[in-house]
Structure formats: structure tokens, C-alpha cells
Design a protein around this nucleic acid. Structure first.
Length: 437
RNA sequence: GGAGGAUUCGCCUAGUGGCCUAUGGCGCACGAUUGGAAAUCGUGUUGGGUGUUAAAACCCUCGCGGGUUCAAAUCCCGCAUCCUCCGCCA
């Protein structure tokens, strides 16, 4: 959410920036609603002030034994006026909120133009894309050959866009998760959290999923209690400090959590229907940083490096791109995507998105900061995937596939797995006595 | 699901209709004292909004939302959260 006065003050700038992501800002409407709201507040405040004065006069006169009938009349009239103005105020406030909550964050001017990933600009590549002297298989073929996926039964249980992992596949998912959490907590300084996967409407509003993107979410509840399934741990982690004032000297806060993520994938029918790439439910290790608003750009680089380290340690070739202004998320002002190499598709595919949301979410969620000398402000929030487990598993299967049909496990996972290879017949090559093949 | 209790400023706490513009303590900040510190003394210390060049001033804020009243922390109604007990339960 934006401060409406700042938007109005920087009118043409704000309009220009929002236009880059295809949002047309109606400054006239914003100005009108703000003026109406302010005027209503002033009338209410004045009337309340007079009520107080009248009440004091009533007391004084009553003590002196004078008649207070006229004053009572006046106070009653004021009260009616207040109630009417309050009703107007509620409407203006609601309209203003609706408008403000629907305005996306302002994209950073350094971002390239464009409204799709075609316009993403490559920042760097890492690792050699593997060269195979045999015909590569995609992750679905590999996984089914190894017997570690069961898509038909997933569909039976829940329908399309769900997956079942089995045996070494399920173990691999668990090992990737454990490795990532250990990396972030032990080497990158993140505090691990275990958080609710169902959250309420204010929480979803705080990070920007609501009110505009309700159709992207799974929604549930008990009786008349409404709950949403989180699409990412960014939601609970960022909202941990919603409505709180944080001491500035305690920043940055660095949080991580492994959670299931649920997405309706409305509007993506027919896209990535195969395999683990795009599911209604997947699990992910998420990174969140809550930082001083002035430092968000530097913090973004730090967080990006943490996400990159995951892939480097796993030995997976990837590249980093800067998303164009029209393709970043609603709450973001700057976003890097990390794309991992998928041999079967002969291209890089998104595996991590690392975003600087500036104070956009902090203002929505009410995450404030206070310095020792009493200066107040809003924090900045950042989030990044570090990493989604399913897509990481896809990349491992594809990049580490062998001519004999087996898949070699990345070395960093072996201690978590207890095996170093899934053999072509789906059995594993167990690690014994610290020697593995 | 049932019964009872609680919710006041960062923490603890006083407060049964107007003098609450909320008491006192702890903590914190600044100052005095000191060679320096402790102790002591003094001053300050919820947040939000309107407003202003800045201020002043005003409004809201005693869990949340309504209501009664000229006037509500205080009375009434609803709700939320927490605690205790019973029931159910991974």
C-alpha cells in the first residue's frame, strides 16, 4: 500500500511508474476520496470537541443549580450530526482503502521495460550446462522409470496438479528440505520458524495477496471463520510482525520456514501440465528479511546470494535475470529470478524469485520501526525462495541423470539421504563406511 | 461443546459515571550529584489522526464493535483472545 499523499505529491512520477506495469492510476479519484475523508474527519473532530465542552458546562451549571436543558439539546443535536458524519466517513474510508489496496508497488526505474519473462535481462550465469552423450529424458520420464513418482494415484486422490513421491523420491524431497534449512540457519543466519499454513484475511492482505488475487488462493474455514491456505511462507513469515513496532537496531531480521504452498493456478490451464513444475500443492523453503527501509537494495543482493548458494552447493547450473517492470509481483518493486537449467527443455526455468518489496507490505501490515532517538518509520520487507523443493528435485533428476538410467545425488545431500545414487531399477546405492559410489 | 475468571501505557499495577487531561512502581532516556560508577534527587516516557513551513491547538486510543448518557476505563449488549475445570482429540 502506498501513502496517498506521497502518490499525489509525486503525481506524474507515480503515474509513469505504474504505467510501466500496466496499471492506470486515477489521481483525480484518489484526490477526491482523500479530500472527502479528511473533511469528514475534521467535522467529526470539531463536533466531538464541542460535545466535550458542553458536557463540562452542564456539570458546572448543574452544580450552580442552573438550567441545563438547552445545553442538553445542543449536545443531542451534535451527537446526531456526529453519527451521520461518521457514516459518511466510514464510506469514504472504505472507498479509499479499496482504491489504495488495489494499487501495486512502484517498479524500480532500474528494471527493464516489458511485461513478460521474454523481456527479462540476464545478470549472470553459473555452472556449465551439462552435456550428455545420450538422449536426455525429462524429469517425469526419469521419475516414472525409477518408480519414485505416482501421478495417476495423485490424480485419483485429489485430481490434476497434485503429485505423489515415493520411496527414494520422498526421501530426496526430505533431504533437499533438510539441506536447505541447515544451509540458511547455520551459514546464512536465518531463524527457522514453523508457521500456520492457514491464515486469515488480514494476514493475506498484509502481504498483498488480498484483496485483488483471491481467485489464486485456496479458501477454507470452519463455520463462519474464514481461512486461506498460504501460497508461500512469505505470508506468515512477513506478517509475524504485523502491527508491531520493531527497534531499528535489531534489524535486519532474517527468517526462514519450510511449508506446504497452495495455489489455485487459475488461468494457467494447459501450462506445465506435466510433472512437478506447476502443482496445486508443493513445498518450499522460503527466506524473508525485514530490514531498514534505507537498506532494502543492499539486502536484496544479500538475499539473492543466499538463494544462489543453494544451487551452487547442489551443483546445479543456473542463471540470474532481472525481471522487467511489467512482470514483477504486485507487492514487489524489484525482482530477480533465478532460473535453473532444464536439459529436457534446453532452457532455463524459474526456480526462485527474490523480491524487494520496499515498505509496500510493511505499510499494509503495519510493520514499523523505531530508532533509539525515537524516529519512527516503516520497515522494508524482502522475500525469496530458497528453494522450492519440487522444482529443485526436477533439476536434480534432469541435470544429474546418467547414461545408464541412474541419477547421481548431489554430494551435499548424501549425508541427509544415506545413499548417493538412485539406480536405474529404482533401488539406491547405499553409503557405507563413509565411502560412496 | 459446557462452566467460571481475566484483558488498563514496554512490563506490573490503582481505578464502580464528571476532579481520569489515567495512579503508583519497574524499565528506559536526559539532567543534577560524582574523579568515575552505584545509590539518591529531578524531568520526561502509549500510539494514531487532523493541522502547521515548523509549532500550537484539536480529535481518537483503557482487548474489539455497538448502546445508554449532557458526560463512559467505569453501566448495558455482542464479539475476540488468554487462563482454569469438564467433554472430545493428533
Amino acid at each position: 500500500m502506498h501513502d496517498p499523499r506521497v502518490l499525489l505529491d509525486s503525481a506524474t512520477e507515480a503515474v509513469r511508474k505504474l504505467a510501466r506495469r500496466g496499471y492506470e492510476l486515477d489521481l483525480g479519484q484518489l484526490d477526491k476520496l482523500l479530500t472527502q475523508r479528511t473533511s469528514a474527519i475534521q467535522r467529526i473532530d470539531n463536533a466531538r470537541g464541542e460535545v466535550k465542552q458542553v458536557a463540562n458546562q452542564v456539570q458546572a451549571k448543574a452544580r450552580a443549580g442552573e438550567d441545563v436543558g438547552e445545553l442538553r439539546e445542543r449536545a443531542r443535536a451534535l451527537k446526531t450530526e456526529i453519527q451521520q458524519t461518521e457514516e459518511q466517513h466510514r464510506q469514504f474510508e472504505a472507498d479509499l482503502q479499496e482504491l489504495l489496496l488495489g494499487i501495486p508497488n512502484l517498479p524500480d526505474d532500474r528494471l527493464p521495460d516489458g511485461n513478460s519473462d521474454e523481456f527479462a535481462v540476464e545478470v549472470r550465469t553459473w555452472g556449465d550446462t551439462p552435456i550428455f552423450d545420450f538422449e536426455v529424458a525429462d524429469h517425469v520420464d526419469i521419475g516414472e522409470r525409477l518408480g519414485i513418482f505416482d501421478f495417476p494415484r495423485a490424480t485419483k486422490l485429489a485430481g490434476p496438479r497434485f503429485a505423489i513421491l515415493k520411496g527414494p523420491g520422498a526421501q530426496l524431497e526430505r533431504a533437499i528440505t533438510a539441506f536447505l534449512l541447515q544451509l540458511h540457519t547455520q551459514r546464512h543466519g536465518y531463524i527457522e520458524y514453523s508457521v500456520p499454513a492457514l491464515v486469515n484475511r488480514p494476514t493475506m492482505t498484509g502481504t498483498g495477496q488480498l484483496p485483488k488475487f483471491e481467485e489464486d488462493l485456496f479458501k477454507t474455514g470452519v463455520d463462519d471463520r474464514e481461512l486461506f491456505l498460504i501460497p508461500t511462507a512469505e505470508v506468515p513469515l512477513t506478517n509475524l510482525h504485523a502491527g508491531e513496532t520493531l527497534p531499528a537496531e535489531g534489524l535486519p531480521l532474517a527468517y526462514t520456514a519450510h511449508t506446504p504452498c497452495f495455489r489455485s493456478e487459475a488461468g494457467s490451464y494447459g501450462r506445465d501440465t506435466r510433472g512437478l513444475i506447476r502443482l496445486h500443492q508443493f513445498s518450499k523453503v522460503e527466506l524473508v528479511r525485514i530490514v531498514d527501509a534505507q537498506r532494502s537494495a543492499e539486502e536484496l543482493e544479500i538475499m539473492l546470494s543466499h538463494a544462489e548458494t543453494c544451487l551452487q552447493e547442489l551443483g546445479l547450473a543456473y542463471r540470474v535475470v532481472t525481471l522487467p517492470a511489467g512482470d514483477i509481483g504486485f507487492s514487489a518493486q524489484y525482482t530477480y529470478d533465478i532460473e535453473v537449467w532444464l536439459p529436457s527443455q534446453q532452457r532455463y526455468r524459474e526456480i526462485s524469485s527474490v523480491s524487494d518489496c520496499g515498505s509496500f507490505q510493511a505499510r499494509r501490515a503495519g510493520i514499523r520501526t523505531k530508532t533509539k532517538d525515537g524516529k519512527r518509520g516503516f520497515a522494508a520487507t524482502l522475500n525469496g525462495s530458497g528453494l522450492p523443493i519440487g522444482r529443485t528435485l526436477v533439476a536434480i533428476l534432469e541435470q544429474c541423470q546418467q547414461a545408464d538410467g541412474s541419477v547421481r545425488m548431489p554430494g551435499v545431500l548424501v549425508p541427509h539421504l544415506g545413499f548417493s545414487r538412485i539406480k536405474a531399477d529404482g533401488t539406491t546405492y547405499a553409503v557405507r563406511g563413509g565411502v560412496w559410489g
